[in-house]
Design a protein around this nucleic acid. Structure first.
Length: 271
DNA sequence: AAACACCCCTGCGGGC
DNA sequence: TGCCCGCAGGGGTGTT
């Protein structure tokens, strides 16, 4: 489900309800997520939530006991803020219950998501090591793409989806950014000109920022934390539009599989 | 080192 | 109406 914009939209939606509140208990109905939800998460009880931050597609709930609850939504994870008395439905795996009667509830049918608990004494999580810069900061610039792509044989689409290069660019926005840039997604990363990397860098920043403003992309089931869909789906130029006319030149949009993932492009506008 | 293939899991839409 | 198949927004792991 969520790429960076959807995670950020979730964060913006839940943070005001969580920050400053005290966790009364954590209910784990099904610990079988990507990794087992650790027992230690019960130690969150009694702590205040200081902040809800985001790094890449991870949500980081910072606690007053110096621990951090790390959430990842995987492909199908959704977060809702609800009265804690709301009856759980299928795939409601985790509740973080607050002392004020509200709870943060994680629903994740496919269970590719994660809920981890990082304590001060713990070894730093490998998940957050080796992550590239945030795309919407100045740390991500064209020079980085130009430098890292030197000699790379990998398709440029896979290159920009590599979290060591830049975080948060998933399948939807990789396709969209490459369309906006006029770059064929199959082109080898090392064969993209510096000038085109300048364009691509700006396209990535623009498409992600616009998607956040529009509440993310709802394809099937993504909802914001208030239950409303995101509206970026209507801004998609190529994703999921195989056979439909290119919005620029009317050539039918093509699809190919790159790196096990469906890829969409206009054979006329992208080279 | 770099480039891939594979896998985790459930739900849904399309074809028959 | 029902069954089977393919596919889905991520990403860690293991193989060449």
């Amino acid at each position: 489900m969520p790429e960076l914009p959807e995670v950020e939209v979730s964060r913006l939606g839940i943070a005001p309800h969580l920050e400053g509140q005290t966790i009364s208990r954590v209910i784990v109905r099904d610990a079988r997520l990507r990794w087992p939800v650790p027992e230690a998460i019960q130690h969150a009880s009694g702590s205040e939530i200081l902040a809800v931050n985001r790094r890449a597609k991870y949500l980081l709930i910072q606690l007053s006991n110096q621990a951090v609850i790390v959430l990842h939504l995987g492909m199908s994870g959704k977060l809702r803020v609800l009265p804690a008395t709301t009856p759980p439905v299928k795939h409601d795996h985790i509740d973080i219950v607050l002392a004020n009667g509200i709870c943060l509830r994680l629903n994740d049918p496919r269970r590719f998501g994660a809920c981890l608990y990082q304590q001060p004494g713990d070894a730093p999580s490998k998940l957050l090591a080796n992550l590239g810069p945030e795309p919407l900061t100045e740390d991500f610039d064209a020079q980085r793409l130009i430098t890292l792509s030197k000699g790379k044989q990998v398709a440029v689409k896979n290159f920009i989806m590599d979290n060591a290069v830049v975080v948060g660019v998933g399948n939807i926005y990789a396709n969209e950014a490459l369309f906006m840039s006029g770059i064929d997604p199959r082109r080898k990363a090392g064969r993209v000109s510096a000038k085109r990397y300048e364009v691509l860098t700006e396209a990535i920043k623009q498409v992600l920022a616009k998607a956040i403003r529009q509440g993310g992309t709802t394809l099937k089931d993504f909802t914001q934390s208030d239950g409303n869909p995101g509206y970026f789906a209507q801004s998609l130029n190529v994703y999921g539009r195989t056979g439909e006319p290119c919005l620029t030149c009317e050539t039918p949009i093509k699809s190919v599989v790159i790196g096990q993932r469906n890829t969409f492009y206009c054979p006329t506008c992208q080279s």
